[in-house]
Each structure stands twice: as structure tokens, then as C-alpha cells.
């Protein structure tokens, strides 16, 4: 068994480790924008650096090596995205941080208000709906919501994933 990664794979492993550090650096550069944009910028930077590494590294590139490296980079990006999105858009986690920041017991209504930082659950609902409407999954008309063909397809896909992953 050969435990040593190829040159491109080694570069990908290094870049995967550097990825969260790059996101940390970007966080201190205001021009990189909001968290979502910053994450996309981080992904692009890492892919570009990988391409540069593949060209610059000495010796001839093997297809298996480059493919393996790309797969490792993709893994790192998905892993970081899962953690990053949990921090940035995690509902349950933000509920907890809002309660802790209040520093005193809160009723359900006060907690909802603290969570929305002065807003209400309506603001939160609109924010989530904006995502569904913006991605063309739901349309609104006359105060009612209806799924588009894309929305129905996504809902069916979600049910299929739930079933096949054992979530029921």
C-alpha cells in the first residue's frame, strides 16, 4: 500500500488546511463583503491556487493525482461550508446565543424578540421566504404562497434524500 499522496494531492491537502485560515484573513478585509460572498471568494482563491500549484510543481502531472487533489479540495470546501453556514445561518445556535446575550430569563415572546434583535418572527419568516422566492421555488400572490415547478421538484428531492438517508 502506498500511503504517500501525489504532488497535486499533497498541494490540495495543504490548501485544504489553509482554507479556514484564508477565510480568517478575508474576515479582516472589509472589501471582501458579507459572509456568503467571502466564502465564495475563499473557494475561488483556493481553486486558483490549486491550478497554479498543478502548473508550477515540478514533474509531469498524473490524471489520478490531479483528480484526487480536486476531490480533496471539494471535500474541504463542503466541510468548511457546513461549519460556516451553521455559524452564519444556524437557527438553533442563534437562538442559544440570543438567550445568553440577554443575561436574564426570557419568556417565549421575549426570546423571539431578542433573537430578532428587536424584530419579530415575521421578519425572520420574510427573510427565509425571500430565499425561496429568490431561487424561484415559491411565488407569492394575493397574500398566498404557492410552489413553482422547481419548488415541487426540490420538495420531492428533499423527501427522497430524507428517505434514503434514514431520516424518514
Amino acid at each position: 500500500m502506498n500511503m504517500l499522496p501525489g504532488p497535486a494531492q499533497a498541494a490540495a491537502i495543504g490548501l485544504s488546511i489553509a482554507f479556514p485560515l484564508l477565510l480568517l484573513c478575508y474576515a479582516h478585509i472589509p472589501a471582501t463583503g458579507g459572509s456568503g460572498r467571502r466564502f465564495r471568494l475563499g473557494c475561488i482563491s483556493i481553486v486558483v491556487l490549486y491550478a497554479v500549484a498543478c502548473i508550477a510543481l515540478p514533474g509531469q502531472r498524473q490524471f489520478d493525482d490531479v483528480l484526487g487533489g480536486l476531490l480533496l479540495l471539494g471535500t474541504a470546501m463542503m466541510f468548511c461550508y457546513i461549519l460556516f453556514s451553521l455559524l452564519a445561518w444556524g437557527f438553533t445556535l442563534t437562538l442559544l446565543t440570543a438567550l445568553v446575550q440577554a443575561k436574564h430569563p426570557l419568556t417565549l415572546e421575549q426570546w423571539a424578540e431578542a433573537y430578532m434583535q428587536g424584530g419579530d418572527l415575521g421578519t425572520f419568516t420574510h427573510n427565509r421566504l425571500k430565499l425561496l422566492v429568490g431561487t424561484g421555488m415559491v411565488i407569492t400572490a394575493g397574500g398566498r404562497l404557492a410552489p413553482t415547478a422547481t419548488g415541487v421538484a426540490v420538495a420531492h428531492l428533499a423527501k427522497l434524500i430524507r428517505l434514503s438517508t434514514g431520516l424518514g
Binding site: 480568517l24 474576515a27 459572509s35 455559524l87 452564519a88 445556535l93 442563534t94 440570543a98 438567550l99 446575550q101
Partner: peptide
């Protein structure tokens, strides 16, 4: 919550969870 807050500050992430 303290650990999450420190990570959010380090990564420049807000604490509203809104998109």
C-alpha cells in the same frame, strides 16, 4: 454560546442568522 461568539467574531460573521 461563548465559543460560537468567538468563532463568529474571528470569521467576521454576524449574529442574526439572517440571509
Amino acid at each position: 454560546a461563548g465559543r460560537v461568539g468567538r468563532l463568529r467574531r474571528a470569521f467576521g460573521i454576524g449574529d442574526t442568522s439572517l440571509y
